[in-house]
Design a protein around this nucleic acid. Structure first.
Length: 794
RNA sequence: GGGCCAGUGGUCUAGUGGCUAUGACAUCACCCUUACAAGGUGGAGGUCACAGGUUCAAAUCCUGUCUGGCCCACCA
């Protein structure tokens, strides 16, 4: 026996800092491009830099780190880069707020400059929580190398985005068209359907009087959008609706505007909704748009890009949509044209980001074809492995619902520019060469002279890309598509895409779509879709409720290891939301302490080679072997929850309470009651146990296992290989039986107010325990043992 | 409107037909036991959301209801 090799009495945050700082300094997880090992690649979600990192986000990165570390121990070279998302609206909005600017009022250069100012301040502050959690990203340095931190607004990344555009353009998969689109007045830009959500918003349902031109009779039409009466192009009723059959072919006159419109039968009108009569306006909602396309009506757009009514709206011109609605209702009331008004909850499309109500406005945008490829995409979705399987449905139902192509151009500034120039004279389009970053609004055109009309003047495109057009490149970027062909060829598809379920319809879908267009294949094999960390009461964390937990607070209070263990133990994030409870995180800390103490205890004993193993030692190694198997198969399927729960139980119960208590006397061997061979078996086994335990726990708790292993073995545990299972031993007794026996003895002593070290005169045991009788006798201080039905005599 | 998932002691949770329903946290009582009071032992606490059905047997299977969460939808 000696002094414990682990000096510190407990695991602390200070030791954590020592460990992760050392990893960062020595770049231990750097990606080796020339490796001979198989590559396991993780297409990590780039966090948005301008919002503080959320506890849920950190939890998902911790789990990704578990995957990465496990794969390293299984002999893979792991590509695990950190990306930072820096494009798009939130940055612009922050800049507008802080510097009181808006597009149009300042030059584009100045506007972009202000965005960069905002980005400088946000810098890498958000990354610190990742570092403190011991996450094994390949690099903590920003760079272009494989595995380095990348930024989505770097010229390197943006040029790749432009390259994908050029390639898709050349393949004929992109076209420009003028269509009615989702438009967010708050963000002042077109949105794709994927960026629109719905909310029930209370609004008035107004019954309005229209006149029939031919007969002079009045009809009643219900609508939530009276401000759009000026754009009404038809009145419809359901073909099965007998009430209105007589109106077929007649003409209705719209109130106030006095416009004559046809009345027709059409299945869009539902019998039981409102009065059964519907006024079809251009762009009141999506069904209107479809109707106009189908009927070949020319839409009249009454709402401008500023979200205000335009000249088509007549007397309500210049008013914002909501004001216009109030104004026209007032006017209709004055003329006694409203016969009824009811408050209803109307399912209203809103912008996912700014929460403004969506309007439908016609604009010219670039589109990526997707409607024609729905079947191919569904096939692809069926080939992708989903963890958990039920998440596949989210993607499939989204693909199924896609009805228009993907509008990718936006009228904003801080984003990747659409790389096109136009001949000023004949409007011929010119795309640049791939490989460099282009800013057509300020850079000269890639050609000197128009190939068609010989003009020498060009206009650069001013529009930019949807941020999803950028984000959906991430796997192409990290695998060096179009940059390092041999690397891409060797390592594509990527292994894993981990991401939140709420961005299945955007990030996951668009990534698959783009990679399919560009490569014809799946771009990753596995998709691990995570649910959310919610607050203690199961409510979603949100800024407005004020229940968002800052990961720094958790790390300051409890440290990384309790947090990491909690992340794994708390629940399976691929199946359910998990609740964030400080009490539970703190509780996990006790397990870390227990582990530390077990290791400290074992470190007091010298290591010995065992000539022969005792049955008790065989038993614990067997138990651990089961645990190795269990962990290995579950880790393989990205399940760390079930193994973590079992490992925790093993540490507290099987190992600490039962095995160590029983083996102690033989390990100490005071008074030489045991032979040298028997003692050696104990000393060998406790060290072997600790080794294996540390290794299976290393992916989950890298800092503490690293430290212990380093102190005892002088090696980096994370580059050891994952333990392999061995043959099962044949033992007379089962684990549950042994544990029950111990409990029974402890209970009898306790009931008789004896100390645990007090002796027992005689015990009668089942014969199956014969092979470990010496250990039982010593541990429980038994004077004599007989065999038969259990009986304890004090 | 359609679909999916869930409902188990105060809280969270395991349990897909079979002993007295698992475990954790919290709570209460007792105990310094040669690594660990950030420990140990023991106790209290549940009509398994509700109603009906299938079965020798139901937390578990079926039907319906209620509640919560999510996804989709052309609801004026």
């Amino acid at each position: 026996m000696q002094e414990p090799k682990l000096q510190e009495k407990r695991w602390t945050k200070e030791v954590e800092k020592e460990v992760y700082s050392e990893w960062k300094k020595n770049q231990v997880y750097k990606f080796n491009k020339n490796t001979k090992k198989k590559v396991f690649s993780i297409d990590t979600p780039p966090p948005y830099v301008n919002t503080p990192v959320h506890i849920g986000q950190v939890t998902t990165y911790v789990l990704m780190d578990c995957f990465a570390r496990y794969k390293r121990m299984k002999g893979f070279e792991v590509l695990f880069p950190l990306g930072l998302d820096r494009n798009g609206l939130p940055i612009e909005i922050a800049a507008e707020k802080k510097f009181k600017i808006s597009p149009g009022k300042v030059s584009r250069e100045e506007y972009i400059e202000k965005c960069r100012k905002i980005l400088e301040e946000s810098s890498l502050a958000s990354v610190e929580s990742f570092l403190r959690c011991g996450i094994s990203f390949n690099s903590w340095e920003i760079g272009k190398g494989i595995g380095d931190i990348y930024e989505t607004d770097s010229p390197d990344y943006r040029s790749l985005t432009q390259d994908t555009f050029i390639e898709l353009w050349n393949k004929g998969l992109i076209y420009e068209a003028s269509r009615i689109n989702n438009y967010c007045p708050g963000c002042r830009t077109t949105l794709a359907d994927a960026e629109v959500t719905y909310e029930d918003i209370p609004t008035n349902f107004n019954d309005i009087l229209f006149k029939i031109k031919e007969t002079g009779e009045e009809i009643i039409i219900g609508t939530t959008r009276p401000e759009l009466i000026s754009t009404c192009a038809a009145v419809i009723f359901n073909p099965k609706d007998d009430r209105y059959k007589k109106l077929e072919g007649k003409t209705a006159i719209t109130p106030i505007y006095e416009k004559e419109v046809p009345i027709m039968a059409h299945p869009y009108a539902q019998l039981d909704k409102g009065t059964g009569l519907v006024m079809m306006c251009s762009a009141g909602d999506l069904s209107d748009i479809r109707f106009f396309r189908e009927q070949n009506f020319t839409p009249v757009i009454a709402i401008g890009q500023d979200g205000k009514m335009n000249e088509h709206a007549g007397f309500i011109k210049g008013l914002k949509v909501k004001e216009a609605r109030e104004k026209i209702i007032e006017e209709l009331k004055k003329k006694e044209l409203i016969v009824n008004q009811v408050k209803i909850n109307h399912r209203t499309p809103i912008c996912e980001r700014s929460k403004h109500e969506i309007e439908f406005i016609e604009m010219s945008e670039f589109y990526v074809k997707q409607v024609d490829f729905k079947d191919d995409l569904a096939n692809l979705a069926n080939k992708l492995n989903f963890y958990d399987e039920k998440s596949r449905e989210i993607l499939l139902s989204w693909i199924n619902s896609v009805s228009i192509d993907w509008p990718i151009s936006r009228r904003r500034y801080y984003a990747t520019e659409v790389p096109i120039w136009y001949c000023k004279n004949c409007k011929e389009t010119f795309l640049p060469k791939k490989g460099t970053y282009h800013q057509p609004w300020k850079d000269p055109a890639p050609v000197k002279q128009c190939t068609k009309c010989k003009s020498k003047e060009f206009i650069g495109e001013t529009r930019v890309f949807d941020t999803w057009f950028d984000s959906s490149n991430s796997p192409l970027y990290i695998l060096k598509w179009s940059r390092d062909d041999s690397f891409f060829k060797k390592n594509s598809p990527a292994t894993l895409r981990p991401q939140g379920k709420e961005i299945v319809r955007t990030w996951l879908y668009y990534t698959l779509l783009k990679a399919y267009h560009l490569t014809g294949k799946l771009i990753f094999k596995d998709a691990w879709i995570n649910y959310h960390i919610v607050d203690e009461n199961g409510k979603k964390m949100s800024k407005s409720i004020g229940n968002v937990v800052d990961p720094k607070e958790v790390l300051d209070k409890f440290g990384a290891e309790p947090f990491r263990l909690w992340s794994a133990v708390e629940g399976d994030l691929s199946k359910n939301d998990n609740r964030c409870s400080f009490e539970r995180i703190e509780g996990s800390g006790k397990t870390i302490t227990k582990l530390w103490n077990v290791a400290r205890f074992i470190s007091m004993f010298p290591e010995k080679k065992a000539k022969k193993l005792m049955d008790l030692d065989k038993w614990i190694l067997d138990e651990l072997n089961d645990l190795v198997n269990f962990a290995d198969t579950h880790y393989e399927g990205y399940d760390f929850h079930n193994p973590a729960t079992k490992i925790k139980h093993f540490i507290w119960e099987t190992l600490a309470s039962h095995y160590i208590e029983l083996v102690k006397p033989r390990a100490y061997n005071e008074g030489n009651k045991f032979t040298e061979v028997e003692q050696a078996s104990a000393l060998h086994t406790i060290h072997t146990c600790l080794d294996i335990l540390l290794k299976i726990l290393a992916p989950i708790n890298p800092l503490v296992t690293y430290k212990i292993y380093k102190e005892l073995r002088k090696k980096d545990i994370h580059f050891e290989s994952f333990p392999k299972s061995t043959k099962k031993e044949k033992l007379e007794f089962k684990t549950a039986e042994l544990e029950e026996l111990n409990r029974e003895i402890w209970k009898v002593k306790k009931d008789n107010s004896l100390s645990l070290k007090d002796s027992i005169k005689q015990i009668t045991l089942d014969k199956k325990f014969k092979s470990i009788e010496k250990d039982l006798q010593a541990a429980h201080n038994i004077q004599s043992i007989k065999y038969g039905k259990l009986k304890i005599e004090l």
